[in-house]
């Protein structure tokens, strides 16, 4: 069985903060990490390998040469090999061009029984690449998946996944091959093992460029992207704030009264029947 996992390198965003006065971003040196949600896709793939030793997992990324670091982490966790699609022509890709490129690479490397990705990347934050890759590969897609189970049906491999929608969990089934995007419901991703780290240290991801993908240059990178960013602005992150100091006894009482007053103003609480007019109701 062959599984492909899409892994993206993203800037670490934990260190971002907003200056409350100016509303602008205070950016400490951004380091790069594996997209946190891709760790769930990796975990889901590795969990399959735990029970089906014959499974082979390939990690695939599109990005600058430095993205090899993210792939090494995937290998350290237990992936068998790693492929990096890299080249100037791929720069500035929107989700359409990214998915087009990744799908071409998957075709080239495949066929795969399962293609896994994260629910979304924390930098682009779109969650579009998974379903788009599925469309380009002409495969069914299950999004927002948690744990998966595999079953060998009469017609081949069947995946049973727990999908998390807004208001319920859904058990869904689909025959392989298919694309799945994973969310946090997978459970805690495993840490790299020492043996894996050693393997990752010695491994250089296989590199693929435009020529190997057989992709026309006008379908990759910014040239292949049907969307353009035309303006960047700071979010209007401020409101007119009323500040209260509740560190003293009186301050605390006043603050609580004010909170209740606001709740009542917005119609979220109402005086209890009879409250404050006890005398009139029960003479």
């Amino acid at each position: 069985m062959k599984i492909l996992v899409l892994v993206k390198q993203v800037p670490e965003t934990d260190s971002l903060a907003i200056d409350p006065e100016t509303g602008t971003v205070v950016r400490s040196e951004a380091t790069s990490i594996v997209n946190p949600l891709d760790l769930y896709a990796l975990e889901a793939a590795l969990a399959i390998k735990d029970t089906r030793a014959e499974a082979r997992i390939t990690a695939l990324s599109m990005g600058p040469p430095a993205a090899a670091v993210a792939l090494k982490e995937a290998v350290a966790m237990g992936c068998d090999d790693a492929v990096l699609v890299t080249g100037r022509e791929f720069a500035g890709a929107d989700t359409w061009a990214t998915a087009r490129t990744l799908a071409a690479a998957i075709r080239r490397l495949g066929p795969f029984d399962l293609v896994f990705c994260g629910e979304k990347a924390t930098d682009g934050d779109t969650g579009q690449v998974g379903p788009e890759v599925a469309a380009f590969l002409d495969l069914p897609v299950v999004t927002y998946a948690g744990a998966v189970e595999l079953r060998d049906g009469p017609g081949g491999l069947v995946v049973r996944a727990e999908r998390v929608s807004e208001d319920c969990g859904q058990i869904v089934e689909c025959a392989a091959p298919l694309v799945l995007s994973f969310c946090k419901a997978v459970g805690e991703p495993r840490l790299p093992l020492l043996a894996g780290k050693k393997r990752a240290h010695d491994l250089a991801p296989r590199l693929l460029g435009l020529a190997e993908l057989g992709l026309p240059a006008e379908e990759a990178g910014s040239r292949g992207s049907p969307t353009r960013v035309v303006r960047i602005a700071s979010p209007r992150l401020t409101r007119e704030t009323e500040s209260l100091d509740a560190r003293s006894e009186e301050g605390a009482e006043a603050a609580c009264r004010r909170i209740v007053e606001l709740l009542a103003e917005k119609g979220l609480v109402v005086p209890k029947d009879g409250a404050g007019r006890e005398g009139r109701v029960k003479p």
Binding site: R239, T241, D245, A246
Partner: peptide, 9 residues
């Protein structure tokens, strides 16, 4: 910065 009412306590 984003609050209508900010209570320090």
């Amino acid at each position: 910065a984003l609050s209508d009412l900010a209570v320090r306590g």
